[in-house]
Amino acid sequence: MTEPGQGQDPERVASLARRLRDGWRPEGMWCRGIVLAVSAVLLGLLMILHGHVPNTVGNLGSLLETFLPWLGMLGIPVLLTAAVLRRSATAIVALVLPAVVWAGFFGGQVTDKRGTGGNLIVATHNVYAGNPDPAGTAREIVKAGADVVALEELAGNALPKYEEGLAKTYPYRTVQGTVGLWSKYPLSDVAPLNIKIGWTRALRATVKAPGGRRIAFYVAHLPSVDVQLDAGFTANRRDKSAAALGEAIAAERLEQVILLGDLNGTMNDRSLAPVTAQMRSAQGVAGDGFGFTYPAGFPMARIDQIMVKGMDPVSSWSLPRTGSDHLPLAASVKI
């Protein structure tokens, strides 16, 4: 006698195959998933027209631009999965639009653009005021081998640890408020920089690099931003500081300029245009991948920046995690 269930599996497989085949027949697959198709088109248009999303209500435009890469990295796979499950050819074809747009905007960032030939290495790190191991953080910074290092969010009780840990490698240094610059080469024309906060979180200094080249270094820690239900993206103070920083850089007399710091914003954020419009991102030009730096545990945005003017970045990379909530960032430039 036939055991219960014997001979039924082939029939079930055949039935499943028929259902799958029928589901992808032309008369059905083009009619289903219209909502998914419209969603895909809207996603593509949102990425194309992100600059037209207004900032007048809760700085919504800047919030969108801060996480713009994730709009495609999350939205496209979700819609594609839904389209396949729905067996909708219309939705799958519609997804070509956001996929092409995302590739055009960010495809170049996922490749390794690092080169060789730089003759100055710089690094920046928001060390976090509550860092439980400032001495260890200083050791990691020294390991990076940078010629010039900027630190932000220096707490008064931790500052001696950083100074002690960096002193041997970097004989020249300046600390202005909560930001500092450590250098292997002489510093001059050091001054705090007013970025309209009310206390000092930025500085400007001249570094005498090898060959006698004088380079203007700016270190800045722009005000923090937040997302609140009642106020939206609270970035107005940061935007005001970015405008002041941009004015200072525009008035700089030296031809070669390097900006290091935590700008609390990405290169896509229109509100940082006073700075980003006149400088180039080392990570964007010569990095490997997106170079996200915050939060350190699961980086989702590159709000720490190394930007240059009058010189070429040849390589940029993130450094290992320290006791901070940010990842350090380094770059090699050709001067």
Rank of each mutant, 00 (worst) to 15 (best):
L327K: 05
W102V: 04
T178V: 15
R321C: 07
D288Q: 11
L319N: 07
L187D: 12
A135Q: 13
L80G: 04
W317I: 00
S281W: 02
P223S: 11
P10M: 12
W70N: 10
V225H: 06
V142L: 08
F217Q: 09
M300W: 03
A91C: 10
L187H: 10
A83D: 05
G130H: 07
Q278E: 07
K168S: 14
H52F: 15
E164I: 05
E252H: 09
V101T: 07
Q278R: 12
G108E: 09
A94R: 08
G104E: 11
D9Y: 12
I215L: 14
L263C: 03
A14S: 14
K196I: 00
A167Q: 15
A129C: 01
R280Y: 05
L80P: 00
V190L: 07
V285W: 03
I197K: 05
G75P: 01
V257C: 02
Y294S: 03
S281H: 02
V53M: 11
G310S: 07
G232S: 03
R139H: 12
G33M: 07
E255V: 02
T116Y: 02
E163R: 14
A167V: 04
Y172S: 07
V101D: 13
K113Y: 06
L260K: 02
L49P: 00
N59I: 11
M307Y: 01
L60H: 05
S62A: 11
N194I: 00
V53N: 11
G115E: 13
G107S: 08
L181K: 05
M307N: 01
Q283I: 02
E140R: 14
A150K: 02
E164S: 15
Y172H: 15
S188F: 04
V41P: 03
L42E: 10
P299G: 12
H52Y: 14
L319D: 08
I92P: 01
G117Y: 10
W182A: 02
W317F: 14
R25M: 11
V13W: 15
W102K: 05
G289P: 10
P160I: 08
T90L: 15
P77T: 07
A282E: 01
V53E: 12
Q8C: 09
L79W: 05
L259E: 03
M279G: 04
N268Q: 15
A123T: 01
L63A: 13
D325W: 01
L229H: 00
F106S: 07
S88G: 10
Q6G: 00
V101F: 08
K184L: 05
D230F: 10
L85W: 15
Y128T: 13
L49V: 06
V127H: 04
L68F: 14
